[in-house]
C-alpha cells in the first residue's frame, strides 16, 4: 500500500484515535502518545497489509488497547487491591447477590468526579478486553449497538452481553465510590 494511503489514513482517522484516547485517558499528552504509537505500529506493518483491512475497527481496537495499557501502568499499585476483589467476583460468577454487596458507608461526598473517572478507567483496564471495548464504544464514544457490532466483528446480541457484563463488573468494582441513591 502506498505512502499516500497511509497519509490519508492518518488524516481520516487521526481525530477519532486521538479522541478515543483522550476520552479514556483524560490526559492530552498521554492521548497524543497513544495516537503516535497506534499509527506508527500500523506504519511498521504497512507493506504487509493486503488492502482488505477494516481500518475503523482495527484502529479503534488498537487505540483502546494502547490507552488501557497506559492506564494500567499509570494505576500501578493503586489498583491492585481492587483487582483481587474483581477476580474473586469472576471466580464466583455474577449473581445478583454478589453484586448486591453490603452497602458501603455513605459515599464520600468529597470524592471528586475526576477521581471517580480515574477509578473507572483503572477498572476498565482490568476488564476482559471485549467488555472494555464494548463499554467504551457504547458509553464514552456513544456508538449505536449495530455500529459497535461492526467494529468488534460480532453480533449485536453479543455486543449487548459484553456491555452488560462490563457494566455489572464496573459497578461491583466501584461500588464503594458510586452513589447508591438514584
Amino acid at each position: 500500500m502506498s505512502d499516500k494511503n497511509f497519509e490519508n489514513l492518518v488524516n481520516e482517522h487521526g481525530r477519532r484515535v486521538l479522541g478515543t484516547a483522550t476520552r479514556v485517558l483524560r490526559d492530552a499528552n498521554l492521548a497524543y502518545d497513544v495516537h503516535q504509537e497506534v499509527f506508527l505500529g500500523v506504519w511498521r506493518r504497512w507493506h504487509g497489509y493486503n488492502g482488505d483491512v477494516n481500518w475503523p475497527a482495527y484502529l479503534y481496537r488498537a487505540t483502546v488497547r494502547k490507552a488501557l495499557e497506559i492506564a494500567r501502568r499509570r494505576m500501578g499499585k493503586a489498583g491492585r487491591g481492587v483487582k483481587c476483589q474483581a477476580s474473586s467476583i469472576e471466580d464466583h460468577g455474577l449473581e445478583p447477590s454478589n453484586l448486591n454487596l453490603p452497602t458501603s458507608p455513605a459515599p464520600d461526598s468529597a470524592m471528586q468526579a475526576d477521581e471517580l473517572q480515574q477509578k473507572l478507567v483503572a477498572a476498565l483496564a482490568r476488564l476482559p478486553r471485549r467488555q472494555a471495548e464494548a463499554f467504551i464504544l457504547s458509553r464514552l464514544e456513544k456508538r449505536e449497538t449495530a455500529e459497535i457490532a461492526k467494529l468488534l466483528g460480532c453480533s449485536e446480541p453479543t455486543v449487548r452481553v459484553h456491555l452488560h457484563r462490563a457494566v455489572m463488573k464496573l459497578a461491583v468494582e466501584l461500588h464503594e465510590y458510586l452513589e447508591g441513591e438514584p
Partner: peptide
C-alpha cells in the same frame, strides 16, 4: 441502591464522553 450505583457509573462515563477536542492538537498529532 443498585440502580443508583449503575446510574452513577453511567453518568460518570457520560461526563467522560464529552471531552472537547482541540482541532490543532489533532493536526499536530
Amino acid at each position: 441502591r443498585s440502580v443508583g450505583r449503575l446510574q452513577s457509573l453511567l453518568d460518570c462515563a457520560e461526563r467522560m464522553s464529552v471531552l472537547p477536542q482541540d482541532e490543532q492538537t489533532v493536526e499536530s498529532a
